[in-house]
Simulated assay, not measured.
Amino acid sequence: MTVGPARTVVALLEKLHTAFSGFNTAFNEGQYVLWLGSGISRDRVKNVAELLTSVVEHLRVNIDIGDDDCEYRTALNEVLRLAALRREELDTLDFSTTFTSWPLRERIVSTLITNYSQVLDVSVGDSNPDDYLVWTALDVPNTYGAPDLVPDVEHYCIAILMLEGLVSSAVTANWDGLLEKALAELTPAFESRVRVAVKPDDFRNAGPSIEIIKFHGCAVRARDNQGEYRQLLVARES
C-alpha cells in the first residue's frame, strides 16, 4: 500500500522518528547542507513570470514609436521571437498598450519562462551594457537588493537552524539577502559567525561557523559594490 504524505505536524514528527529516523539523526548531527531556491523568497521578491513581464514592459515603454530602427523595438522583437509566436500573431501585438493588456500575454510569458536566460541575454543597442536587461530592466539593486525587504518565515526558520548548529552551510541560487538579514537580526555576532561567499576571495575569511554560498551572485553586494559584484550576477545564457 502506498503511504500518503504527512498532512499534519504531528504526523510529520512521527515520520521523523520512524520512516525517516536515519535522516533525522543525520540532520541533527549537522551532516546536511541546505540547497535553497526561489521558493523561500517567493512572497518577498518577483518570481520568473513577474521578472519576464517587467522585461517586456520595460522594452515596450521605451520604444520610440516614430523610429522603426529603435533599439528597444529591435530588442523586444528578439524577445518575442523567443516566445515562438507566428508572424500573424506578432502582427496583432499593439506596442502602444501595456503588456499586461495583451491577449497573448499569458502564452508569451509561459513560453519565455523556459528560455529566460536567453531573454536576459538579448542586447539593447550598442550603447547599453551586455547585462542591461538584468541590471536595468529588472532593476536588481532596488528589487532583489532593496534595503527595505523583510525576511519571511522561511528565512527566519533557516537562520535559527543555522544558529543552533544543525546546519553549518547553505548553498543558494537566490540574489536577495533575506537569509543574511534574518541572521543579522537574530545574532549580534553576525560578522564573526557568518561567512557570505559570492566570489573566490570570500572563502579566504577563515573562522565563521556559518556559511552561505551564493553561486548566482548577490544583489545586495552588487548594489553596494557594483564594480566588484555586478558582473557576478548569473542569469544570462552567456
Rank of each mutant, 00 (worst) to 15 (best):
M1N: 04
V3L: 05
G4T: 00
A6M: 09
A6K: 08
T8R: 03
V9K: 12
V9P: 01
V10I: 13
V10W: 07
V10G: 07
L13M: 14
L13S: 13
A19L: 11
F20H: 15
F20L: 15
G22K: 12
F23P: 10
N28P: 05
G30N: 08
G30A: 12
G37P: 07
I40P: 03
I40L: 15
I40Y: 05
I40G: 05
S41R: 08
R42Y: 06
R42H: 08
V45I: 14
K46N: 13
A49E: 12
A49L: 12
E50C: 07
L51M: 15
L52W: 02
S54M: 13
V55P: 09
E57K: 04
E57C: 09
H58M: 11
H58W: 09
H58N: 14
R60E: 06
I65E: 15
I65P: 10
G66Q: 13
D67I: 06
D68P: 09
D69M: 10
C70F: 04
C70P: 07
Y72I: 02
T74Y: 01
T74V: 13
T74E: 08
A75R: 00
R81S: 14
L82C: 00
L82M: 08
A83P: 04
L85R: 04
R86K: 03
E88D: 12
E89H: 06
D91F: 00
D91R: 09
T92D: 12
F95P: 02
T98Y: 11
S101E: 12
I108G: 01
S110L: 12
T111N: 08
T111R: 09
L112A: 07
I113D: 00
T114D: 14
N115C: 11
S117H: 14
Q118I: 00
V119M: 06
V119D: 03
V122E: 03
S123Y: 09
S127W: 05
N128A: 14
Y132V: 11
Y132P: 11
Y132G: 03
W135R: 11
W135K: 03
W135Q: 14
L138H: 03
V140I: 15
N142H: 13
N142F: 10
T143S: 11
T143H: 04
T143Y: 03
P151M: 10
D152L: 05
D152I: 00
D152F: 08
Y156V: 02
Y156R: 06
I160D: 10
L161V: 01
M162N: 03
E164L: 10
G165M: 07
G165A: 03
V167P: 00
S168T: 10
V171C: 07
V171M: 12
T172V: 07
W175I: 09
D176P: 05
G177N: 14
G177H: 08
E180T: 02
E180K: 07
K181D: 15
A182Q: 05
A182K: 04
A184W: 05
P188M: 07
A197T: 06
A197P: 00
V198A: 05
P200Q: 02
F203M: 12
A206G: 04
G207V: 01
E211A: 06
K214P: 01
K214W: 03
H216G: 06
G217Q: 03
G217D: 03
A219P: 05
A219K: 02
A222Q: 01
A222K: 01
G227C: 03
Y229D: 07
V234E: 11
A235I: 06
R236Y: 06
E237L: 13
S238C: 13
